[in-house]
């Protein structure tokens, strides 16, 4: 009993050290655990795979840097898919750090020969949240008279003939926020919508997938890893999955041990008079 009592009083620093080790060791020495591909990722992949060379897609990169660990691998993998297929990407964002995240995403592609203004463009940040989404979907050149690099959007070849979201083939968003506003503002343009979401937000998007309002979603880091597997191009997502596995295992063990200690020592604790049980 004494052992379980001590177990319940374990120092926080021990838990922190165990967490660091459980995340660090698999990152340095991967375990190579197999990753199966879920239905959501498979569905998103098949929708994007139908794009033809030259098709234009609006890509909303509205995740903050703090959520990048969960969403960035998805964005990297989908961007590779788009560019491999010869599709053109029109980047927009409604978060302040979005334009810089977009620049870092497109940098390797620009170095590989993709031309700014022809194969992709970074329209930059638009304030206003949902109103911003509604506005650029309604009239993209009015919402963005100039792009992030200072060019007039009316002169960008990638935006030629594009007036509203209805003129592009697909809308893809990556967000740390709820998907409600994307569904509300983009579904009226009758184009497929794919959402890249963080783990904690994804459950709220499930009804939209089920109703067909979202053509597909990618869920957290695992969604990115699964997409990399479908692309046959393992990257940061796959590399991080072992660490996530070990982190999850540690949390599960903590829950089990914490409860074991609680239940086994509960009867031994004196109950104060008048205390609420």
């Amino acid at each position: 009993m004494e052992f379980f009592k001590r177990l319940g009083e374990i120092d926080n620093r021990v838990i922190y050290i165990l967490l660091i080790l459980s995340l660090l060791i698999p990152l340095m020495k991967p375990l190579g655990l197999p990753i199966s591909v879920g239905a959501h990722t498979r569905r998103s992949f098949s929708v994007i795979d139908k794009l033809q060379a030259g098709d234009r897609v609006i890509v909303d990169i509205s995740y903050s840097v703090s959520g990048a660990a969960d969403v960035q691998p998805q964005a990297v993998a989908i961007l590779k898919h788009l560019f491999d297929k010869g599709a053109k990407a029109i980047f927009v964002t409604t978060v302040t750090e979005g334009p810089m995240i977009i620049e870092s995403l497109v940098k390797p592609w620009e170095q590989a020969g993709k031309r700014y203004g022809v194969d992709f463009c970074n329209l930059g940040f638009l304030a206003g949240g949902e109103n911003a989404i509604a506005m650029y979907c309604r009239d993209i050149k009015k919402a963005y008279p100039t792009d992030y690099r200072g060019n007039a959007t009316s002169e960008l070849p990638v935006l030629e003939g594009i007036h509203s979201a209805g003129d592009v083939k697909m809308y893809i968003f990556f967000s740390t926020q709820n998907s409600d506003m994307y569904v509300r503002q983009v579904t009226q343009y009758k184009i497929p919508i794919i959402g890249g979401l963080i783990n904690t937000i994804a459950p709220q998007a499930e009804p939209y997938v089920n109703a067909g309002q979202l053509a597909g979603i990618l869920v957290g880091l695992r969604g990115g890893a699964e997409y990399e597997i479908l692309m046959k191009s393992p990257g940061m997502g796959v590399a991080s999955m072992d660490a996530q596995s070990m982190g999850h295992l540690l949390i599960i063990m903590s829950v089990v041990l914490g409860n074991l200690s609680y239940f086994l020592t509960r009867s031994a604790k004196p109950v104060k008079k008048g205390a609420v049980k």
């Binding site: 926080n12 838990i15 922190y16 703090s66 660990a69 914490g258």
Partner: peptide, 19 residues
């Protein structure tokens, strides 16, 4: 800095899962 700030929640989560 922003990534590290967010990552710190993992430590709180680990501690909360135990206690």
């Amino acid at each position: 800095l922003a990534s590290a700030f967010y990552a710190m929640t993992a430590f709180h989560l680990a501690s909360a899962s135990y206690r």
